[in-house]
Design a protein around this nucleic acid. Structure first.
Lengths: 326, 326
DNA sequence: ATGAAAGCGCTAACAA
DNA sequence: TTGTTAGCGCTTTCAT
């Protein structure tokens, strides 16, 4: 390589790494040699001396993956990958739910095998992000951590506004007995979507406050809807904190002989495949999952470039997609 | 490290790599030192000398990702990751749809930056697998390649048997005018599911052959169902090559005033979220996606361990999951 | 069974 | 601006 271009290895290295202190002549010679030989720097050798790995790790704490549903994962990865492709960073993947696996992640970080870590679907108050930050690694979270970590930047959808918009929409449609089916209240996403509902109804007169608990799953939505119908047979709208629960609600409503949206309007959350394919098609709050992946990557990239940066959370807007159900 | 254990670096290396030619004494000393110091070998340094990367690359040819639906991706990755976690291999991810990106994958392989490549959601007759094999890299495909490559091992679900089982089930339920909604006929998965339908009806008397084309998407299923109803208003069953198309068919049937399953039985394929959440819940053919991920990894691992191995395709069984729609 | 030493391909500090 | 050189941390002969 160096011979081919008639320069020293040092100069080749300078060209490859975009150093400004290279003569146009040498630059050209090296570039041509690179072309001709199809030269690609050896990653291991470079990594050995620079002590960078040019790798970011995506850690999936499997446990809650189900909560978000799988499509979430694919879109997020797509976004991450997209953003990383503008850098030399490679994306590495690891599932880690057990403590043992978490230890392994910590080791990878401490030994400089990865330059940064993105964490998704974390357990409530997992200590992993804290430990990682303590180890001095760039870290970014997906989803607001429930125990406020303060120092770890995260990306999340604006669940509160989304839920609020959905509820307000129902109110504006003239609905006055608006119920909600919540997600688990030990997760930020569950809490925030309930807060949004409450906030929309605050100060409104005539608005009933009908809350039933769910776990984001279909069955829980169906049960919750039955419960709501029993509590208040007059209920004329329901905001469910997930599409799956909305689908369950739809079943319960049909079983009870209520027409949707004529008798009861239904809104879900996530704008998933199900929303588009169920009958009636669900009005739902969409979150920009792929964009969230991109922002997650950006958070990491910024920290890797500028190790001392303190980043703020990134909250991405949600959007109400109206279809047949409300 | 070496000092701590009172041995040479060479011996440490021997212990770490499980060489048999180490005295129990030295072995113990080194192991204790490793424990004490939390030593982890530097991956870059090792890779530099061994010329292995201990990394396998998962390449997603984005274009068709949609066809399978996103949940597919998540489960597959989970399986892959699970299987790889029993080895020192790391999973690296890359989206590559453009020719440029394909080139990059080839370069990574040629320069020994990855030890093997798994390819998913390939375009019909993508040359990438061939090129990769030519470059001497272990390769494994997900989904039978349409142009028979012959030398590249792949993993696939038994689409033919699955489709056949679904159709036979309909027949056994007494249905005699069984239609099908196919997937695109330029993909193995579309072709095989149609073949399965045909094979089930072959030689059966009274069985109508009603075929309508779809593209795996919901809208195409709805249109296809309308078309089928027009062609044969007496149709009493339909096998759709995807759950999405089955969901579309359900819509068309409801619009036409047919009851499911009373008037028309419906079976989908994929056993996706939608199948479980739609009303009526879909009877559907399940494929073991996570298992497919595991097998994909195994294919790679086998080739990495034994470079000259010629592997056969792995066809995994499908299963008919009966619910309300048939 | 073990130590000594060479060298994997690269970057970065230094000298020129 | 460029060449020279010293390692980065590891594995792997080759001696012993």
């Amino acid at each position: 390589m160096a011979v081919e271009a008639g320069v020293s290895r040092g100069t080749v290295s300078r060209v490859v790494n975009g150093s400004l202190e290279v003569s146009p002549r040498a630059l050209k010679a090296v570039q041509e040699a690179i072309q001709k030989l199809g030269y690609v720097p050896n990653h291991a050798a470079r990594s050995l001396v620079t002590r960078r790995s040019d790798t970011v790790l995506l850690v999936v704490s499997e446990s809650e993956a189900r909560v978000f549903g799988e499509p979430f994962f694919g879109s997020l990865v797509r976004g991450l990958s997209q953003e990383l492709s503008t850098t030399p960073l490679q994306l590495q993947l690891m599932m880690a739910s057990t403590a043992r696996q978490h230890d392994r992640v910590e080791q990878l970080v401490r030994n400089g095998h990865v330059d940064g870590v993105a964490l998704i679907s974390l357990h409530g108050d997992d200590p992993l992000p804290r430990n990682l930050v303590a180890a001095g690694a760039p870290v970014a979270l997906n989803g607001r951590p429930i125990s406020d970590i303060g120092t770890v930047p995260y990306v999340d959808a604006d669940n509160l506004s989304g839920a609020k918009a959905a509820t307000e929409y129902l109110y504006q449609q003239g609905r006055r007995r608006i119920a909600t089916i919540t997600g688990p209240q030990d997760m930020a996403v569950g809490i925030d979507r309930l807060s949004g509902y409450r906030s929309a109804l605050r100060g409104r007169r005539g608005g009933a406050r009908l809350v039933a608990q769910g776990d984001f799953g279909q069955a829980s939505g169906e049960a919750a809807m039955r419960e709501l119908l029993e509590k208040d047979p007059q209920v004329d709208a329901v905001f469910a904190a997930s599409d799956l629960m909305a689908a369950g609600a739809l079943r319960a409503l049909r079983a009870a002989g209520r027409r949707v949206p004529d008798d009861v309007a239904v809104i879900g959350f996530d704008d998933s495949d199900i929303a588009r394919n169920i009958d009636p098609m669900l009005t739902s709050v969409a979150q920009p999952v792929q964009q969230m992946g991109r922002e997650l990557a950006k958070l990491l990239i910024a920290q890797i470039r500028e190790p001392e940066t303190r980043l703020s959370p990134v909250i991405l807007p949600t959007e109400l997609v109206t279809r047949e159900s409300a």
